[in-house]
Amino acid sequence: MPSCCIIADNAAQFTRVNFPENICLRFINFKTEYSFINPKETNHNSGLDFPKHLALDKDPIIRVPDYDEIREVIETSVNQFDDVFIILHSKEINPAYATIIALLNKIKGRAAVHLIDSQSLSIGQGFLIQSAMDLISNNTAGNLIEETLREHLPHIYTLLCTPGLSYLHNAGYIDKGQSVVGEMLSLLPIFSLEDGTFTPIDKLKNIHGVIDYFIEYIDEFDDLFQVSFLQTTTPAIQEAKLIKQYLDENHPATIYTEHPHNNYLSSLIGPKGFGLVVIENN
């Protein structure tokens, strides 16, 4: 049986926490200026709470991993394993993607390297990582694993909603004017990850309207596998229970999960942002 390693980044989130011990899972860690984690528990975060707004002239709050840190993860992996699967969050919003491509062109090892742009992040990216683990556990050949993961890509859909447009401005996805006007009007813009890129699709006036939009969006699918709601920081959005109620009544076989978003996602959409990930069968 070939030895396998998965390299991901910490934009990923997972619907399960127990992974096979015989599969190596390594992370390229983006650092964030703010954190939900006590600073005593990590060397990478300051532990400062996420503010409601960011100053328009503030430096980016997401820190790209050091070049040598990325190189060490890749170099040791390709020399120790037969197959290395690198499953990253969307290259369109991933400031380290170009560095990783450049390193892969330089570093040679025994491994067959399978680079996957998830065109997603959070639960969508995590779903691909979990799928890779399942396939590895079933002794699936490396090329077939890559092919299967790529077949999943067009069946993963992500919607993100945020009142904190200053965070999107800080990350470079909207300009200063859009950030100021959007927050002044107190609208809730909804973005879709279209081919991995933040794409505005609607603006609504309140959370209940956004939840209704999410339910109508889910209703467009005929063959659902999983629906995941990405919760805000406390207090949680209670209206999310309407999504579960809709699924229980109309798609009882569909997996439903809720997750507080991690530091990376909060650094993109703010602590009061929330979202929906829909995965259909393929």
Rank of each mutant, 00 (worst) to 15 (best):
D219H: 08
S118Y: 01
I156R: 01
D68L: 07
P154W: 00
N263S: 12
E258K: 13
Q13K: 14
I86V: 09
T232G: 03
Y173Q: 14
Q119W: 00
H53A: 12
P20A: 08
T15Y: 07
T76H: 08
G275N: 07
G47C: 08
Y246H: 12
L185I: 10
N43I: 14
N10G: 06
G109I: 01
I93E: 00
S90H: 00
S90D: 00
L104C: 08
A8W: 01
N263Q: 01
G177A: 00
I190P: 02
S131F: 04
P163E: 15
L135N: 08
G142P: 15
I215E: 06
I23Q: 09
S35R: 03
G142I: 05
L88E: 00
Y246A: 10
F30N: 03
H53W: 09
K58S: 14
F81H: 11
D83P: 12
I101W: 04
T148F: 01
I201G: 04
L153E: 00
D175K: 11
K31L: 11
S179M: 11
S192N: 02
N45C: 13
P163C: 15
H169K: 14
C24P: 01
Y213V: 00
A102P: 14
P20N: 13
I129R: 02
Y213S: 05
V113R: 05
L193K: 02
M133F: 03
G47Q: 08
D117H: 02
D83C: 02
I23W: 15
N29K: 11
T199E: 00
Y167F: 13
E41W: 09
L230T: 04
H169I: 06
D66K: 06
F14D: 04
I101Y: 02
C24Y: 02
K91E: 04
I37A: 12
L159W: 09
T15S: 11
Y256L: 04
N105S: 13
N139Q: 14
V227A: 02
H208R: 15
